[in-house]
Write a protein that binds this DNA or RNA. Structure first.
Lengths: 341, 341
DNA sequence: ATGAAAGCGCTAACAA
DNA sequence: TTGTTAGCGCTTTCAT
């Protein structure tokens, strides 16, 4: 059994009240004589006293902890598995949290079973939820949330602006990619997806793809959308029937990477025969040969921003502009080139 | 204010005790009539009741949370910053924790200020401490730890086998690297370090380096240790004075990577003029040109193992073999080649 | 300047 | 089968 406040009080010859005041109540105006204070501090030190944060949290009704959740229907993101997407986001989140004196915790069973628990079981002062797909189930859950929450990669409007949200400018980002490709002479440009996430950001990016091509006078059709499918089967099928495009834009690094990986099997060279543009642009892009050109979003900054917003929320501030949109960039690497003449 | 057990009890016309039993006491033999139980469940659902985990934790004296700490003197590891070392380790730790129903939390101010708090403030049921350098300060802290703790990358013997520990076989790993190099014809092999961590694993790896060269009849001297220093200044100095070795082994990916990065500036080609071997072998190795050959340690498995050990510890088991040693492997990539004749 | 008492929300031993 | 009571360790009025 560990030493409690009562123990320290006993040894110092005072009551727990005094111990609490001396040890944790620095801000308050209530004074304790320096002699007593010193006696208490010494006793605490001698006995190796530590507050019990559970008791404190129960009493004070806050925990200095924030939780990180993700939407139903997604496997837990790995820190090290292909794209550094989650790793980057988390670096921003954790750094932000630490600076504000908050811990951040990752919870099990937050996909499917009962994420709603974490939202109101007193464990967290606030939550960061990142998900690209506000399904009915997700929506229902979030609506019940009783603590501050900020969304990453979901538009605030999806939830009637009830929560703050941090997103990147998908439209502008895709525009950057399309402009780059058009500038290289490409006219037959495809959009790829893997069919797993058709409603969230991927959808937005696909719409942007169509829009920006149109801006350049190119009308894209259903034929220009390649669903690589599970295990890249759809991609192989596409290649097998002859590559009908000179460039392709993927909505993330994984999908774009599939093209780099599979193309050689069909004698297609990147970027000579096919230019490939990905999205996110984490360090993962450098692992490909050729290195993957990609539209970047400032993931670390976005995580950080989400956290700042959350802290302000927790502090009782009501944010007026519930959505922060970060502009994208374009990192030209080696997977895009002038179209072969 | 959120709804409490008392509220639910009131609505269901029973006492909090009954609610507690119905909602959370499934395993116990105490019976509640099905009618009452149903009434309670309905009331809880109607009112959107959630346990308060702080109250529960305070009462039950466990939190289902484990903390991840690292030693004093190290900056917090980033998930996405060069080597995927920390990311991989964390994947193992988090996956393990989740499977056992534990959350994992990262705490601020755990380097320098007061890591000891996390060790006994009731916040965690157990701790994973990863650090390569058991300084006096770290040692003092760990000795005060009042909850189960497992070490990663620190030998159990450093703390009188008081804690379990998970390490990789540095000697065997370095042996693999040296054998590889010798097999390629190298005789003039250097060991590199960056002077920041001379006492922990790096030290062990350096000793192994000397030993394994000796096994091949090569006596290495102080001249064969290259301290690349801050900002690679030492490395540039080394190259400037003419590269005296045909191969170099680095104790991690960062140091080895420095050679790949700086060598071209001095007209030295890797691997034609200089073979480079790193340690850890995370995906980061693939970001280098040429890709970095490296000694691998199964980081994900090690993190996972640490967690399994920790959970067993928490469950009251006293582990008999306090140290698990994982064998290393060698991932030959592109930075090593036969010595030029 | 210090202490007494109440209570945060929950669970468990004991009683009925 | 259900209720009573006590208490986990802490902070906070409100006395003194």
């Amino acid at each position: 059994m560990s030493v409690t406040m009562r123990d320290v009080a006993a040894r110092a010859g005072v009551t727990p009240t005094v111990v609490s005041r001396v040890l944790h109540n620095k801000a308050t105006a209530i004074r304790v004589s320096e002699a007593t204070a010193e006696r208490v501090r010494q006793a605490a030190k001698d006995m190796g006293y530590r507050v019990n944060v559970m008791a404190r949290s129960l009493r004070e009704r806050h925990t200095q902890m924030i939780g990180v959740l993700h939407g139903i229907g997604f496997a837990r993101a790995q820190f090290d598995d292909g794209s550094r997407y989650f790793a980057s986001l988390m670096d921003g989140i954790v750094n932000g949290a630490f600076e504000h004196g908050y811990s951040v915790t990752l919870c099990p069973k937050l996909l499917g079973q009962s994420p709603e628990d974490a939202m109101s079981d007193g464990r967290f002062d606030g939550l960061v939820w990142y998900s690209t797909f506000p399904s009915g189930e997700n929506r229902r859950m979030l609506e019940q949330c009783s603590i501050p929450l900020v969304l990453i990669h979901t538009r605030a409007s999806e939830f009637d602006n009830r929560f703050c949200s941090v997103v990147c400018d998908n439209d502008q980002g895709i525009g950057l990619g399309i402009d780059h490709l058009i500038g290289l002479g490409h006219r037959k440009v495809a959009f790829a997806l893997d069919g797993r996430d058709e409603f969230g950001e991927v959808h937005e990016r696909q719409a942007a793809f169509v829009g920006h091509l149109a801006r350049h006078g190119i009308i894209s059709s259903r034929e220009d959308v390649i669903n690589i499918g599970p295990n890249e089967a759809g991609l192989r099928e596409y290649f097998a029937r002859g590559c009908r495009h000179t460039a392709v834009v993927g909505p993330n690094e994984g999908v774009a990477g599939s093209f780099l990986r599979v193309a050689p099997d069909f004698g297609i060279r990147v970027p000579e025969d096919l230019s490939v543009v990905g999205f996110d642009s984490t360090a993962y892009c450098n692992e490909f040969r050729p290195r993957l050109t990609a539209i970047s979003q400032p993931l670390v900054d976005m995580g950080r921003c989400a956290l700042d917003l959350l802290i302000r929320n927790i502090s009782g501030e009501t944010l007026t502009s519930p959505q922060i949109v970060f502009p994208c960039g374009l990192d030209v690497r080696e997977s895009t080139a002038y179209i072969a003449l």
